[in-house]
């Protein structure tokens, strides 16, 4: 798309979708330009991300190298699970982390005004404005993990399994986004909580281990209420051909339900919003 075409698409959109797509593309371009302007910072963050990706695997490799299998998960399957965990978390961070940090600042400081007056869907705009492109190397490394794990297992997933995997990964990202957005939005009711954008990260950390490890109430909590099992266990099982179909359907439905709830909460919450800046 040329510059004029983009401008035209934003100013005289043929449809709402085309308008939002054009706005999103413009945001991607400014983010890319920003990352290229601060190359040293970008490289350092990318390096730190890849280091953490290696550590995530090392942690599980050291532990599972010493046991045969835990709750049905051996070392090779854990490589697939760890890759999936890193993939979902790094993609979620790439797409939403900075947006949620900014959103929490806008809400905590009462600075939403300039966003609410823009002629785009406000939830779309606050959620997609920024990208953290330094997460990309981690996501790519994660795909390598998944490939290596499959090879060690001697598995060649069919198109149905690959499709199921992609759908499960997408569901996980949508669920995490919706949950993240809702926790930040809650500040409209509670009043200032400065680090609210960081509340979900330690919960995502739980997905380093397969959900089959949990027992009793925790199992129910992490499988059906918080989408922790959806982050790593459900997609990995889909790829390995171990997933009960109803669980995949539940994951997709949960993602849609959480997404719907997030838009609803945002609409209701904005009625409570009282600006501090105008």
């Amino acid at each position: 798309m040329s510059r004029e075409q983009r401008k035209a698409a934003i100013q005289n959109p043929k449809s709402k979708i085309q308008n939002h797509a054009a706005v999103y593309l413009a945001c991607v371009r400014t983010c890319l330009a920003r990352e290229l302007a601060f190359r040293g910072h970008f490289l350092l963050l990318a390096l730190a991300g890849v280091t953490w990706t290696l550590l995530s695997l090392a942690l599980m490799a050291f532990l599972f190298g010493r046991v045969t299998a835990v709750a049905g998960w051996n070392l090779d399957r854990m490589i697939v699970l760890t890759g999936t965990y890193v993939l979902v978390v790094s993609l979620t961070n790439l797409l939403f982390a900075r947006n949620m940090q900014h959103l929490s600042e806008y809400i905590n400081k009462g600075e939403l005004d300039l966003i609410l007056v823009k002629p785009v869907n406000s939830q779309f705009f606050v959620s997609t404005r920024f990208l953290s492109l330094h997460e990309l190397p981690s996501a790519l490394a994660a795909l390598v993990y998944v490939g290596v794990g499959l090879q060690r297992l001697g598995l060649q997933p069919g198109p149905l399994q690959v499709l199921g995997y992609a759908a499960a990964v997408a569901s996980a990202i949508v669920s995490l986004y919706a949950l993240w957005f809702m926790t930040v939005t809650l500040v409209l009711w509670t009043g200032r909580i400065e680090n609210i954008a960081y509340a979900l990260e330690p919960v995502m950390d739980v997905a380093r281990v397969p959900a089959d490890v949990f027992r009793g109430l925790l199992r129910v909590l992490f499988t059906f209420v918080l989408p922790v099992a959806m982050i790593s266990t459900v997609p990995s099982k889909a790829l390995l051909g171990l997933l009960e179909p109803w669980m995949g359907i539940y994951a997709a439905l949960l993602a849609l339900a959480l997404l719907w709830a997030s838009t609803h909460l945002w609409r209701v919450g904005l009625r409570r919003y009282s600006s501090a800046s105008s």
Binding site: I193, E201, P202, V206
Partner: peptide, 29 residues
């Protein structure tokens, strides 16, 4: 409340590792 959120960062990782170890021991390893 902020302190409670930062506390999750110190609380959850060791607890998750503990649950993993418990599963290992449950299987007699």
């Amino acid at each position: 409340v902020e302190a409670a959120i930062w506390y999750l960062y110190d609380l959850l990782p060791p607890v998750v590792m503990l649950l993993l170890w418990l599963a290992i021991y449950e299987e007699g390893q």
